[in-house]
Amino acid sequence: MSAVLPHPDLAHVPPTTTPEMTDPTMTTSPDTTYRITTPRVVRAEWIKLRTLRSTWTMLLSVLLTIVGIGAIAAATATGAVEGPADGGGPGGGDALSTVLAGSMLAVVLVGVLGVLVGAREYSSGLIRSSLAAVPARLPVLWAKVVAFLGAVVPVVLSGVLVAFVVGMAILDGGGVTTVSWSDEGTARVVLGTAAYVIGIGLIGLALGLLLRSTAGAISALLAGVLVLPTLAGALLPDAWDGLLKYFPSNAASAFTSVLPADSLLSSETGALVFAAWIVVGLIAAAVALTRRDA
């Protein structure tokens, strides 16, 4: 870089608001100008999130995935687009799961975004500056959660709603049986799917803070949270179903399916169990964040 520097005397620019500069000791308790507050910490985390290009790429991908795959799945179901030879198509049959088929990929994207919010600062070392700026530490976790939700909730929610409207229109145009918003269970499944996608993102965020490694947390999320329960369900004897239904993805299936399978929990219990996983994850992250050396 060019070596032209301001002269030191000129270089020291006093801050724009300097009531405390008249205090010669500089060690008295700070005035309110530079007071730390929870809204300010949330704002800091929001700036961190919005100033990374990857955030916007991910959010756009999530929106396109939910809407696009839903539309393609719907078109396939009408026969307008040629599907696989077995005729099954994505979504597995009923109109709602067809138009929401994109959520299966979106959940991975949102989960990864959550991991990045939690773990990214550890790979760069920025976390030390962040925790030195917020030495109480816990506000950083809540601020990350709020900023993450602020970015993800509008995208996922509008995604599933648009996917529902567009997908049903395509199905209707192709003469396939559709469901309407007022039909029993429709709102639960559509909003439940959004909640599932967002919830997995929060679990990813917690895993990121716990494991402090992007790669490690993504592996844990994909393998442990999303794939393992399905794999275990396929491999283990039915006797294990009583345990497997409490896994996050299975608990979520209970409120994201129109007619939950008998091996699953009820919608209400499933929602509670899924919420409990999120809470447990965030509490573990909070303990790790406050107890461990940064």
Partner: peptide, 25 residues
Amino acid sequence: LDGKAVDKGRSARNHLLALGATVGV
């Protein structure tokens, strides 16, 4: 502590804005 401990994808200005925001800078 470490001049390299910044997020590589974020601009210098945004780095300062983010950390400063915690105390209203």
